[in-house]
Every structure is written in C-alpha cells, then in structure tokens.
Write a protein that binds this DNA or RNA. Structure first.
Lengths: 121, 121
DNA sequence: AATCTATATTCCGTTATAGGTATATAAGAC
DNA sequence: GTCTTATATACCTATAACGGAATATAGATT
C-alpha cells in the first residue's frame, strides 16, 4: 500500500524536520545541516531515504544538490503533507527550524535556488 | 516528538487496516481476524502495538477484548486519523475491509459492544 | 475441579532502521 | 593535472520491527 511508504517516511524525527523545512521551498544539503544542526551524513542519508520513496526530487547545481518536494505528489501524499503542515504550526521544534531557516536565508527567492552563493558554515 | 509515535503506528499495512476498521466503532479481536483475514497472533500483536502508543484502548467483556480508538486523541492524532479516513475513501483494501465488516456485523450497534454474542468463526 | 474459548505473550529467525566513522565521488578552483 | 568543497556511499554496530509457532492466561461453561 502506498500509504505505508508515506508513513514510513514520516516516522522519523529528522525526516519530519526535513519535510517541514522543504515545505518552504527547495534547499541544499549544507543549509539543511545548518538549520537542523545535524551532521552531514545524517541529513544526506535521510534525504536519500525520502528520495528513494518519491517524496523529494534532487537537482544538481554546481557543487550543490538542491532538494525539493516532488512536483507531482499523489493525492495521499498531498493530504498527509498538508496535515503535517497543520501539526507543525504548533510545534516548537518545527517552528525553531523555520526561524533558523529565515535567519540563514532570508532572501532565498532572490539569491538563486537555495541561496548557496553564500554557503552556510 | 509525538508525531513520530503516531506515524510509527501508521507505517504498517495491518495497523492501517485495523485503524480504518476501528473508525467504524469498537470491535473485538475475533472480528478483526474475520474482517482482515489475518491470523490471531498478528492481529493481537498489532493491537498491542497501537495500545502501547495510546492510539487505542481496551476493555474486557467476558472472554472478549473490545478495542476502540482512544476517547481523547491529541490534536495531532485527530488530524492524522481524519486524513487517513480521507485517504481510505478511495482505497480498495480499506473499502473491502469495511464491506466485510458490514456483512459480518450489520447490526453492531444493536448487538452490544462488538456483536460477539454471535462470534465470527 | 476439568475444559473450552478468546486473547496475550514468549521465543526465534529474518529483515529493516538509525547513527557513526571512514571513504568515495563529482564539480569547481587553481 | 592537484586541491578543495559539497555530497554520497560503504561499512559497522545496535536496536527495533515483523511474522510464525508454541505456550500462557483469564474468564466462561460444565
């Protein structure tokens, strides 16, 4: 069942945080590291997990890999991501991540696909 | 995070089917067996899993254990169960289970907490 | 008491998952 | 070409999950 695949992606704290941040727009791995405060391996492996199950897609941009939510989500995925967004609204962990994201890349839209012209370090 | 616990419960096919059936009302294990067509151990263990995480509660009624969705779900749980219901609407597996439930216990409300006066066998 | 019925639990084998360390790859800079 | 930077992968260990077989328990019946 496809739902199982979706929920398998959602049943890990790190992946939930990744998806929450991704809901704001595409991002590169280095920014995920900075926002979540987690090591590169961890971020990278969980993104690979999400990618293998079709929740996110990647595109290379020079040295950076830009991840974003899949452009054509299934009905189920769309519904559950919306539900997650709803739950995230009142969750301190998620909100803290979004705050850090805003600080880190306040002009994401202007500075290219993920703002990595000024890499986070 | 509480969400992880919820999604952990949802990332198994059998548990999804159990929750879908439970949305119709309380039910005993023997009826779950009949509706899902799965062995007793499997049903019992997954119900225990759901119970340990607070998604369902149990009450003994003679020889039967009547499971039902927790009467006081968290905001997150309520949202996600509603989302699941929405997804189930168009899912053949879930609908087949509900059809079997209807056939098996068409008068659940009348015949007591789970209709086990006429046990399924 | 013995027995039956419904359900739970224990034990076992297999597979999946998560995190860390170390290493590999791929592109850019020089 | 070498070197650096960003990211991915391999390998290892520990833990959790799943399913099945066998057994245990608790209540009902006789």
């Amino acid at each position: 069942m496809d739902l199982v695949k979706i929920y398998s992606c959602l049943c890990d704290r790190t992946r939930l945080r990744l998806l929450n941040v991704l809901a704001q727009g595409p991002l590169c791995v280095c920014h995920f590291q900075a926002v979540l405060g987690e090591p590169q391996v961890k971020i990278s492996k969980h993104l690979a997990y999400l990618r293998a199950r079709g929740l996110v897609v990647v595109e290379r941009s020079g040295n950076w890999m830009i991840y974003e939510l899949t452009p054509k989500p299934s009905r189920e995925l769309r519904a559950n991501l919306a539900c997650l967004q709803d739950c995230a609204r009142e969750n301190p962990v998620f909100q803290r991540d979004l705050a850090r994201l805003k600080k880190l890349a306040p002009k994401l839209a202007e500075s290219g696909p993920c703002g990595c012209a000024t890499p986070a370090k």
